[in-house]
Design a protein around this nucleic acid. Structure first.
Lengths: 197, 197, 197, 197
DNA sequence: TATGAATGAGGATTCATTCAT
DNA sequence: TATGAATGAATCCTCATTCAT
């Protein structure tokens, strides 16, 4: 599989993302994907091994984007862990609102879909690692206190996800950001002594 | 749909739940479901309209169970909203660990899958309503403070879900319960004045 | 793959034989085979693994028939090896004229078609073994003399085949039988001393 | 079709012959042919009309070679019809051993493959005519006697073919030549009075 | 009610062929 | 002339669904 035109590959991914987000896998026809991408059906097979590979590639592309955007945002120097946190939550929510198709797809990944695909493990742990490092940095500076940063790292995108299950999305992103931050800050600034029943 | 043998219907649902949780919809063969349930392929069509109806029935059956278990637990009289909360979180986590297949299925519902099915709206709002009422009760007694109980009601199962994406499940349920409660209590017992940027 | 109706299996084989003999493999559509056999397309896959398996099954069925007919004919007690030979040649030629489709198929088998299919080796060697045993019996009685019965066993069907390449078949079977016998008898009754340049 | 580079055309034919002999027509990919010939896929269409034309061209090229080699051999003056015969059989067998791919291809031609192609009739009759003329010359000189030279002309390559169906080829060419000659001479030197039932 | 053999609509995939370069 | 990326017609095969028993 040669990849002579990266531009075309991205066009296909974008078209597929929209379709895969709007319908279950088995209702998405490759002929529709091809048409939406403005390429021939056979062209899909130049860039992707098969339908499942296309689906997974779309998925990974989404995680790549999100992680890249988060990373870019966090690379701006910030001394305050709380500001880091706010930036991260804001980035995730904005990504979700800007890429509703992609986010719906990412939200509903099932481990059985990605079982056996090596790309998955790294993508997933990249995102988790990013969030976790923010929390750990806060703990190191004494700003945060958290007995289980690895769980907290999951909770944050998990809260965003939980709200975006609803269709149509009648919650305003600012409110969502504020509420997630309210939860997270309250928990992270609690004194550790108080924690765990 | 009143059917002759409710026992058989449940056997089919249980078999289907396991298969639907372990593989994407399009890889689950009705012949496998029939075999796993110990019935003939044609029998499935006596109890369910078609494959999608079976899938949704499995899903709704899961929500029914969870809601029923929650309801039963909360019907025990408790004066303290905080105890209610603890009971609810405990129930959700225990359900997830007792019914991993079903929970995986419920975790990954996509709105496009249930679009147009009336049962969905009621199931979903039952669960959400249950959680929300607990919070509102706490607000009414002055124990809790929450500017967006409808978001919080989603956050709680959302946090549980976010952790159970991982396979294998190497987090112990007690830790998960404690951490979710830590988050929720911290946020709900914060004074409202502090909230929202 | 269950085989509940052997009758149907044979109907499919017969229909497929005609089509496979009249067109190259890749021009035979399974939908045509299904229609010709009076069954649904899916039914083919109950009885045969795939298109190639159907093709090979047709082929083997042909060899089975020919060997069975030869065997039946030779089971009639004959003391004279020459009569055995005549019977065998007659049977082969008559088979070829009675089953032109099947014979065309058998005539054009290529070893690459059957490579890796275990059924092939046994079928092929059955036919060869039958012919060879006739010759060896003649040698044993002193009626025949042949330095290479294993080659002669191939020559006989080979001569028949060589003539039936032509389309249309304007050679009368009796003439063909007589000419093959003329060749074979002349060679086999030659004194061995004369043989080999 | 006069083409610019006859050398390239022959490279393609040689590459295609090997592939067509090793696999059934529908499993031979033109991209494989192109790669094996060291040319681009589009180049094939400069030299051949389409896949089938390439296949037939390969086939006819084989017949052309064999006929040309036979003709060259027979053009050497020989008075003895028996020597002619020996030369022809030797030439055919040696060709088969020298060009196993091509011979396998020629061996398995099916009339449905060449139906409607005018080149076929002439090729086929050239070879047949050559063999037949040898026999008729022998009859004219009184050395041979044959009631059906047109059948005998087919039998000779037919016997060679019948042995080479086997894979791997464990028969030594000298033995094959000797045995074919043994058959042919025995039949042709029989007195005609004895022939035909 | 229960079954599973039969069906055929539907869709993924292949690959001969084209054509812009 | 030579190429190989792009194409989409063509077709194998799957599997949800039906229905005679």
């Amino acid at each position: 599989m040669q990849v002579p035109d990266e531009r075309k590959r991205l066009r296909i991914i974008a078209a597929a993302a929209e379709l895969f987000a709007a319908q279950p896998f088995h209702k998405v026809l490759l002929s529709d994907v091809a048409e939406a991408a403005g390429v021939g059906k056979g062209t899909l097979y130049i860039y992707f091994k098969n339908k499942e590979d296309l689906y997974l590639s779309v998925l990974y592309s989404g995680f790549d984007q999100l992680v890249a955007e988060l990373q870019r945002r966090l690379d701006q120097d910030r001394s305050d862990p709380s500001e880091y946190l706010e930036a991260a939550v804001g980035e995730i929510v904005r990504f979700a609102y800007r890429n509703p198709y992609m986010f719906e797809l990412m939200r509903t990944v099932r481990w059985c879909d990605v079982l056996g695909d090596d790309r998955w493990k790294s993508k997933r742990s990249e995102l988790k690692g990013l969030m976790e490092s923010i929390i750990r940095r806060g703990i190191a500076t004494g700003a945060f206190c958290d007995p289980h940063p690895e769980l907290t790292a999951r909770f944050i995108p998990g809260m965003v996800r939980s709200v975006l299950v609803e269709e149509p999305r009648n919650i305003d992103p600012q409110t969502l950001i504020a509420h997630v931050l309210r939860f997270t800050r309250a928990a992270l600034t609690q004194r550790c002594a108080e924690q765990d029943s």
